[in-house]
Design a protein around this nucleic acid. Structure first.
Lengths: 335, 335
DNA sequence: CTGTTAGCGCTTTCAC
DNA sequence: GTGAAAGCGCTAACAG
């Protein structure tokens, strides 16, 4: 049947243990021996048996993605990124849906990790913003890497994006188009990204000498509906802004819908900007001006730094901030 | 450390083999013994070690989802369904992205299954429509269950939906609203669903005495862009239909965009219907009349029939057809 | 119906 | 640098 470590050891005329050393990249193997073994491995097409490795070493070679995020396209991108990073590393991805509001969250996840002997977790917002949850992971010695952390602890493994700068840049762009009356829809309050984006907006208008108008600043939660509701709300104001910046594309689409239902035209009567460059951003008309994050790359990197740590290569792959890209489309018009 | 089968056998005062029998639901264990063992299992909080089970039994307790589908929301729903079905079964889900056009597809998947000792595959369109691929799986004795098969082989494991009937019903609904000039955008030619939906449309108009007009029937591929292009194309015709039925929501959204860019209003100037009830269907304005399939439930069932087969309960959980639901929204207007 | 014995394929321990 | 032996936790094969 399948070729085992024994076959390799026979073929290479070394002990089983030596083969084991080679395939695990351990030190103390003569270069010549290593070459010989590697040749046999290749020749016989040897693949270490995962179950046997797991059984002995108490590792599972499985990473788990933890998420509680309604945005399907974000999830798909994250997954895809991790998936690519895992390729040819021997690690595999398991998906774990969570409920960040559950009071059993912490124990559930610890149980999950222990039951399946998950080697490491990749944590996405809003779970990544829950200090006590992360603390619990540390207390149980669970390795994890964070996508979009609220605080960038140099000790921890994370990938972040420059949400503040991007929001600042996008707001400046809107201002450059001649807008002074710019509304803002905040994202889910539990996501740190929401605050970074809001602060970027606030600082940008301030630095351009524009006073904030709280009538045009609404709380959303990243959902289409919350954007729609915020739009309805804003359009009831005595004075309506000439542009609205929503913290994500779904909410921007919601605003667009509420505007169109009111008989307003985008961008003639209202300019609009979103964030994320989700599929919806260009599947509506007019297409949304937005900010694109390299979500797939970020997720891939989050997996890579975890794997690097497991393989003792932590020095080579480190936490990192990724840059976003401004995408100007038809929903933004000069006044 | 962790409690093992030995601890249970001691606690219950039986042999370890008996414990093994109980946890694997094997026959030939006296009811009383079983109870005793189960009590110990519970008391000690025993969880069989997956790696050891795998090593011995050559099973991995992993199902893999095979997909090559650009629709992220569909993917997320499928995943979520399988995920729920796996809960508390001891099985886990691994995701595997494929390229249905690759000529290495067959060997790649076989290799993947063998390397990871995947117990069973859940196959989605368009992979599920590739006869030779499925044949290859059978030749290699790989168990699989199909979501949306092209042919419903009573021997195979599958979940299907009544696409034909749903398309027929939706077309009839459009006709009921007074439309006679109804365009149709076909889906990806490799997906059997495309043909079922098209046939439903064709039979419905025919049975209502409407002649098909091939100027209004365009080939799409389920993407937003293909819908947009088809729209542009149709709106060049000398006579424009009063309604268009697109084989999915993304394409319907594409048509809406092309209509709006032409200055047409939906539904005043053009009624529109889609299929799938993707998020986009109600994130555009006007919201799309469409057909909702219970994708999550279907995916869950696909996983369940696989697991049932593994656990020797094939009789209890069988292949099944699910019913879709017509959702009438603002994009459809009476003439 | 139940138990004993072997051993899955690998890593760990400890010897050389 | 390298190897021999032990054994991870479980199930298969065979007795009884």
């Amino acid at each position: 049947m399948a070729v085992t470590i024994k076959d390799v050891s026979k073929d290479a005329v070394v002990s089983i243990k030596t083969v084991s050393r080679v395939i695990n990249n351990e030190a103390n193997v003569a270069e010549a021996t290593k070459k010989k073994v590697l040749a046999s491995v290749k020749k016989l097409g040897f693949k270490p048996n995962k179950s046997a490795q797991s059984l002995r070493s108490k590792k599972s070679y499985m990473l788990a993605l933890l998420y509680d995020n309604p945005n399907k396209s974000y999830l798909a991108d994250v997954q895809s990124g991790i998936f690519n990073a895992c390729k040819n590393t021997g690690y595999n991805l398991v998906i774990q849906e969570c409920d960040y509001k559950s009071n059993k969250l912490k124990t559930d996840i610890i149980k999950f990790v222990e039951d399946f002997k998950i080697d490491g977790l990749i944590v996405t917002p809003p779970l990544s913003d829950m200090e006590d949850f992360l603390k619990e992971l540390e207390d149980h010695q669970v390795d994890y890497s964070i996508i979009a952390p609220s605080t960038m602890n140099p000790e921890s493994l994370y990938v972040s994006s420059n949400d503040y700068e991007a929001a600042y840049a996008l707001t400046s762009e809107i201002i450059k188009h001649g807008h002074k009356d710019i509304g803002f829809i905040k994202g889910h309050p539990k996501h740190s990204a929401s605050h970074m984006r809001f602060n970027g907006y606030l600082d940008a208008i301030k630095n351009h000498g524009i006073k904030r108008n709280d009538q045009w600043i609404k709380q959303g939660n990243f959902s289409f509906k919350s954007g729609f509701d915020a739009g309805v709300d804003i359009f009831h104001s005595a004075k309506i802004p000439t542009a609205i910046f929503a913290s994500n594309d779904s909410m921007a689409a919601g605003i667009m819908k509420s505007a169109q239902m009111k008989g307003m035209q985008v961008p003639q009567d209202l300019s609009l900007a979103g964030f994320d460059d989700s599929p919806i951003a260009h599947q509506i008309w007019p297409a949304l001006t937005t900010v694109k994050q390299p979500v797939e790359k970020m997720a891939a990197h989050a997996a890579k730094i975890l794997i690097a740590r497991f393989d003792g290569l932590a020095e080579k792959t480190k936490s990192k901030e990724f840059k976003s890209e401004l995408i100007v489309r038809e929903s933004l018009k000069s006044l």
